[in-house]
Design a binder for these strands. Sequence first.
DNA 1: AAATGCATCAACCGCGGCATG
DNA 2: ACATGCCGCGGTTGATGCATT
Length: 357
Amino acid sequence: MGRAPCCEKNGLKKGPWTAEEDQKLIDYIRKHGHGSWRTLPKNAGLARCGKSCRLRWTNYLRPDIKRGRFSFEEEETIIQLHSILGNKWSAIAARLPGRTDNEIKNYWNTHIRKRLLRMGIDPVTHSPRLDLLDLSVLLANPSLYSTAQLDVSRQFLGGGGGVEPPLVSSELLRIASNLLTSSNQNQCQQSDSIQLNNNSYQGSNSCATSTAQFLNDAQLLMMQQQANVGQFQPPAAHDDHQAGGMWWYDNGAIQSNFSENLLAPAPAANITTGYENHLEPLAHDFAPACFGGYNLAASVLSTPASSPATQLNSSSTTTTTYNFNSATTSTEDEKDSYCSQLLKFQVPDLLDVSDFM
DNA sequence: AAATGCATCAACCGCGGCATG
DNA sequence: ACATGCCGCGGTTGATGCATT
């Protein structure tokens, strides 16, 4: 049975609220409470439907509403709660005093979601997106692979143009690994250290500390995670001539002959959200050896203001400390810049992500 | 200065859940 | 058990302002 839309009644006003209407609504609710939204507009002398009144009150006129920019802490909370609750905006809003579900929803769609996408993270699943992140790196460096390999890489996208599941196999991972290994060699010559704004960076590994290296290695894990390969076989001996080395996944541990490290899974961090399943392994397993300890989770989830200097013990003898100073990343643009520079992640024109925006 | 594109956000729409008769 | 009505939620739209060309 259909229900008559509440605002289709004759004489009921729609659209933006006037100051007079606002005042009428405020005065009435202050005196009587909202009671039944259905009868409120008539009693308050408003030519609005109850639904419109309720929305106006809960999203705008309520006295306890906090206006203005979201703080880093609030943003962090939103992301973490969203990883647990999904698009349950009202549930998220219930944990953010003064913020409405509508406001949070808007902020998510206009800010956070886009930022996560730029970083190659699926804002729905909160897991790395192979099709966004991986191929962008590959495709941005066409010199790194042959035509045949490009054809293979296109399969990751589900090349038919339709909504096909990404094709990822151990063999493709191996190919990608080789490609990325080549990429590493190029990238290492370009950036042995990272300086971002006033954030301090103290790395010690030269080649292995480039951002590109981090991405590449992390991407392989993403592939593995998305493909549920389970066991990614170590490279065969004949791969050893590839100077860069490779990563593989063995019995729960990330192994590499790149830095001759065996990376044991990191102990649980203090982040207790669904990210543990996705980003934390990346940050802790990869960061020490291949990125010198940069904490991806800290950059994505914990905004700089709330992320104390992260100290991670790598499997090598190197201990690396990072201090991303919040004072230098206080604006929205700076947040974006901060993230994009760190990850050096650029979506090539070839890879259109607008559909996801 | 005008045109165009983009980002933001208040407000609307439709649906599902729940209460009530 | 079923019909009806209300409320709240999530998705979407459209107006507005700002930036860019």
